[in-house]
Design a protein around this nucleic acid. Structure first.
Lengths: 187, 187
DNA sequence: GTCTATAGCTAGATAGAC
DNA sequence: GTCTATCTAGCTATAGAC
């Protein structure tokens, strides 16, 4: 077997970045190829079903990120709930690069791509919500209070990413993260 | 002069709908033409600079909507601040069709279109924020409290539209609107 | 002002050499 | 596994008849 020129993980990182910033229809195969450092035909060798398979893989990869960096972290009983919240918020800050990066859910839920990926988007959002619901319960909220607060948390993250971009002001994202943290720590 | 087959206002309504749901790159001229009921060449007669001019016109049209349906309404001194908030929220509910429609800022701030329309998006978001800032001040908040609350309001609207779509649950949008209303009426 | 027809290009996807 | 070359369909945009 001929060696891979670019490793899978590097390809995923590039695809994530391009789909996030350009959306599904906006990300052309030419650009996806350039950003990964492969030629178009080589990308098709990795993803035989083409662009849709690439976006599906991106959603899958980011779903695993949520499992590992949010869900597990927020449930870690070796840490206090306060520590967990602070670390979770820090992971989110890093993942969105302080608000410079947009969210894949937003990028892939416009137009045709909403229908193509609705199952994965729904499942991904549910994971976010469940992760925050768990920590709410650990902090003493009832199940329904925790559910509502978790949905609010996701809403604020999504909304602040949009407004941060539109207003070109990273402070908006940071303020929102602080506000979310305070919601959990100073109820 | 030959009579217009389709009136300007009808064209705008169709363009708004298509750009909102498909985004900029996702909205093809073929579809824009079909949805307006004109042929492509006729659309170019109305918008000689093409697709970009259509999207610009859409942003301008929706900016006027904010001026007339939010800014003016929220400042109307013939009504109590409570009445104004309730009516403003009702206008927003109607405009987004209870959460079924997405927001133009979100639709036009991905990929290339972010650069094309950043000035208009920034101005449009500023109008939203100023409208809500004014009502906050009328309700007794300080300028900086009102500013922060207005930004939060926009964040919640944007975020709830995203999450409503992703979770396919209109109740999320409605709950958020109620929550926003309560923030202003029961501080 | 609206239309048919089409130019010129780029999109996603494939064939086949190495 | 990666590449160059290429296919076809769709794209934005325009020309010119009515």
């Amino acid at each position: 077997m001929r060696p891979q020129k670019v490793q899978d993980i590097e390809i995923m990182t590039s695809l994530v970045k391009t789909f996030r910033s350009k959306g599904y229809e906006g990300a052309s195969l030419a650009e996806l190829a350039t950003s990964t450092g492969l030629k178009k035909a080589s990308l098709y060798h990795r993803f035989p079903k083409g662009k849709q398979e690439m976006a599906t893989a991106v959603l899958h990869y980011l779903e695993e990120w949520v499992d590992q960096h949010l869900f597990t972290l927020l449930l870690d009983e070796n840490k206090t709930p306060e520590e967990r919240i602070k670390m979770g918020i820090a992971e989110i800050r890093k993942s969105y690069d302080h608000g410079k990066e947009t969210c894949i859910f937003r990028a892939l839920s416009l137009g045709q791509s909403l229908e193509l990926f609705e199952v994965q988007i729904h499942r991904g959002m549910s994971k976010w919500i469940n992760a925050f619901k768990n920590i709410g319960i650990a902090l003493g909220l009832t199940a329904s209070e925790a559910q509502q607060q978790a949905v609010d948390t996701l809403i604020k993250i999504q909304g602040s990413l949009i407004v941060t971009r539109g207003m070109n002001d990273l402070a908006i994202f940071e303020t929102t993260l602080k506000e979310i943290q305070a919601t959990y720590l100073n109820p």
